[in-house]
């Protein structure tokens, strides 16, 4: 906050253009309040209260509503990265992702490296759900994939594991996209690694060849272009420590059930 408005003589503030002259420093003062570390700390209490109350209200396995094919959005919008940059991804796409691997690492007994064929050979789940973007729009699509709980069971989660981190192939600016969730959402029956949208192979704009569906949270949690799944005890030291690409950069809520 600058003192620009404070030193203005009172007469000028009351002058005809007073409203405008006074409004500009007032607005910048508001923005300064918004950016103050103490404010951010207080504001984040809202997220904690929402997470605690939602978890108290809902069963661990409470399902997001599943729709019918009659309810599908005519066009399923994509957002964020529509095409990951780089030759490596382009080469994978040209080969139909035949050599794509998803690494399951971290606090697991048996680290895995899964091909798309491995993932499709596991038991599959299909669900028609509503995707809610943080921006406000919604789209309904049918997703098919393997439950994350099955993949984690195959790798064997260790006792110390508390969070699952999702690594992605798309780079936005200086860093690769990533997301994370706790074990309640990781082991939820509708949390799947999806490779099909509306019964067709996942389009590149929607995260080919594999993306996360985490149906009780907003769209930015649904990491696309998955390359790795990592079980960790803490989110400290991963990215800026807030548990996700946008959480680190613009302070989106890590708990995005709100």
């Amino acid at each position: 906050m600058t003192g620009g408005g404070v030193i203005l003589p009172r007469r000028r503030l009351l002058a005809g253009a007073g409203g405008l002259v006074a409004a500009v420093p007032l607005l910048s003062a508001c923005d300064a309040i918004n950016e103050a570390p103490l404010t951010r700390k207080i504001l984040s209490m809202g997220e904690e209260m929402h997470q605690a109350s939602q978890r108290a209200l809902m069963d661990r396995d409470a399902l997001a509503r599943e729709f019918t094919r009659a309810d599908l959005s005519p066009v399923f919008r994509s957002n964020g990265t529509n095409l990951p940059a780089g030759d490596a991804y382009a080469a994978h796409a040209a080969r139909g992702f035949a050599d794509w691997r998803v690494a399951v690492t971290g606090l697991v007994n048996t680290p895995l490296s899964l091909s798309m064929a491995d993932i499709r050979s596991m038991p599959q789940r299909s669900q028609i759900t509503r995707h809610d973007c943080v921006e406000g729009w919604s789209a309904i699509g049918e997703w098919t994939g393997v439950q994350l709980s099955r993949v984690l069971a195959a790798a064997g989660l260790r006792d110390r594991a508390r969070y699952i981190v999702f690594r992605c192939a798309d780079r936005i600016g200086d860093a690769l996209y990533y997301e994370s969730c706790d074990l309640v959402d990781a082991l939820h029956p509708q949390t799947i690694l999806a490779w099909a949208l509306n019964r067709e192979l996942l389009p590149i704009a929607n995260g080919a060849p594999l993306r996360l569906r985490i149906e009780r949270q907003l769209g930015y949690k649904h990491a696309k272009y998955l390359t790795g799944i990592e079980a960790v005890a803490s989110l400290d030291g991963i990215g800026a420590g807030k548990g996700g690409f946008w959480e680190d950069r613009v302070d989106y809520e890590w708990y995005a059930g709100i």
């Binding site: 508001c30 918004n34 613009v250 809520e253």
Partner: peptide, 16 residues
């Protein structure tokens, strides 16, 4: 709130 585009902050204020 705030004055320039900042969805994340808008949500923080709104949800608290």
């Amino acid at each position: 709130i705030p004055t320039s585009y900042d969805l994340a902050s808008g949500r923080r204020w709104h949800l608290l």
